[in-house]
Structures are given as structure tokens and as C-alpha cells.
Computed example of a mutant assay.
Amino acid sequence: MKLTIIQTGDVPAPLRNQFGPYRRMFETMFDSTGQGFSYDMVAVSDGAPCPDPADLEGIVITGSAAGVYDDLPWLDPLRAFIRDAYGKRTPMLGVCFGHQIMADALGGDVRKSEKGWGLGRHTYAVTTRPGFMRAAPAALAVACSHQDQVIVPPEEAEVILTSDFTPNAGLSYRNGAALSFQPHPEFADDYTIALAEMRRGKAPDDVVETALASIAKPSDSGEVAGYIGQFFRGR
């Protein structure tokens, strides 16, 4: 199965030499599932046109420094692409900004949260278990880095992950072919730490220090990657 990575942003320039391009993180994550995926990439944030979802086997919409409320020329075409993919039931995953733009395009409300920065490893309660998550435990600990949040999910979405900080952290959609997560299962711990350190001066020092300390908590990113792999293979 080929996954088309819709790139909406990339690793920040100061970290790119060390950690590589963003697409490689997703490819490494998907390779770890053993599902034998192959990959293509469309850099919509660099001006590449969105493809026809009918021609795609699976879609992955990445994170970005952009917000859904920004005035950027590629956002409306991306919204139209998401709605088209949803209608055609092309399997689609959104992560962080991808999670937010999917919710925005499908009728939800996304804003910069008054709660501020979410950094480091957060723990999310599993509220619902779709078939591909049938074996999920009561909670999952996954890295995050965001200020924006899905405030109100689309009517088509069901919340599957939640926390006090991020109530709508995971969404499964009623067409059976769309899934999104606010946290980043593709992030390795060293990259999560480097991102948190980059937020010094933007996020409060105590939020950064808490984020750095949180990495001592065991990660469930591998389990989440497995669920995502099963989601795509089950389509």
C-alpha cells in the first residue's frame, strides 16, 4: 500500500541537519509497523497542487507551523482536498496540524488554545476503541508540540483520545476511512526534547522543564503507530 504524505511543514531549519526532513520521521514510523508501506510526498506548503484522492491509496497529512486560521494560499485547496478524500473514502490520517485542518475542513472549530503550549509527553485517556484499536490500554503516552487545538470536533467525528489539556486529542470519523491525532507518534524522544528546548522564550520555563522531565515516562508511540498501520491496512 502506498501512503501519500501531504507535507504542510517541515522540521525547523535549526534542527533539520540533525533530524532530517519530516517525511523521514513518518516513513520510519510506518516502517516500524512491518506493514510494508511505500511512500510518495506532495509538498503542498511549497506550492505543489493537491492530487486527486481517487488516485491515492492512503493519505497522511503532516504537522506544520501554520495555523488553520492563517492567510496562506494552499489552505483552501487543502480543505477542498480533505473534503473530496472524505467523500471518496480514501483512507486519511492527520497528525497535529493535519488533525486540526481535517477538523476545520469537515466542520469543526480550531483555535489557538488559551491553555498555551502543549509540550513533551502527554498522557491521553482512550475513550473509544475502533476496530484497529481494540487492544488499546486505558491510556496512551505520546509526544506533542502545539498551541492550537480542535475546540469543537466535526459532527462526523468521535473522540477516541482525550486529556484535560487536550479534550479532543484523537478523532475517528464516521465514514470509517478518516483518523486524526493531535500528538505526534512519529517523534523520537531526542527530537521531542530538541523541540521543547526550542520553545524557550516562547513557552514559560516551567512548561519547558515539565516537558523535558516528561520524557522519562515510557512512550506508547510504537503502539499508536501499530494502530495506525492497522487502520490503513484495514481499509
Rank of each mutant, 00 (worst) to 15 (best):
V110E: 06
D220P: 02
M41T: 15
R174L: 11
M1P: 06
I82V: 15
D71W: 02
L161M: 08
T210N: 03
Q147A: 10
P167L: 04
L140D: 11
T162L: 06
R79V: 01
D189M: 13
G87E: 10
M92N: 10
M133R: 05
T128V: 13
R16G: 01
V60K: 00
S163I: 00
Q147K: 13
V224I: 15
E156N: 08
E156G: 08
V110H: 04
F187W: 14
R233V: 13
I61E: 03
T128I: 09
Y173S: 01
V110R: 04
A85M: 05
K217R: 14
I82D: 11
C144N: 14
A196R: 09
L93H: 06
M133T: 05
R174C: 13
G120F: 12
P73W: 06
V126S: 09
A196E: 07
E114V: 12
V44Q: 07
G63A: 13
E223M: 15
S180G: 03
Q230T: 15
T127L: 13
T62D: 03
V150C: 10
Y124T: 09
G176H: 08
R200E: 03
M29N: 04
A157I: 00
T166L: 02
D189W: 07
A13Q: 14
F181W: 12
A194K: 09
A216T: 09
E114M: 08
F26I: 10
G47Q: 08
A178C: 15
L72R: 09
A65C: 07
V44K: 10
H99L: 00
G9M: 07
M133V: 05
W74M: 05
G229D: 05
L72V: 11
I160A: 07
I59T: 12
R83M: 02
M198A: 12
A135G: 06
E155T: 08
D31K: 07
V95W: 03
M133C: 10
A225K: 05
R79I: 04
G226T: 03
S38W: 12
F30P: 03
V11D: 01
R235N: 14
T28Y: 06
R235T: 10
A216F: 00
G63M: 04
S113P: 07
S32Y: 01
G120W: 11
Q7S: 14
G94P: 08
A225I: 11
S172L: 04
F165K: 09
P73T: 08
E114R: 11
L179R: 06
E186P: 09
T90C: 15
G120Q: 06
E158F: 00
R200I: 03
V42I: 15
K217L: 14
G170P: 04
R83K: 15
Q100K: 01
G222E: 15
K202M: 13
A80Y: 02
V142K: 04
F187Y: 15
K217F: 11
A178T: 15
Y86P: 00
D104K: 01
I5R: 07
G201D: 04
D190A: 12
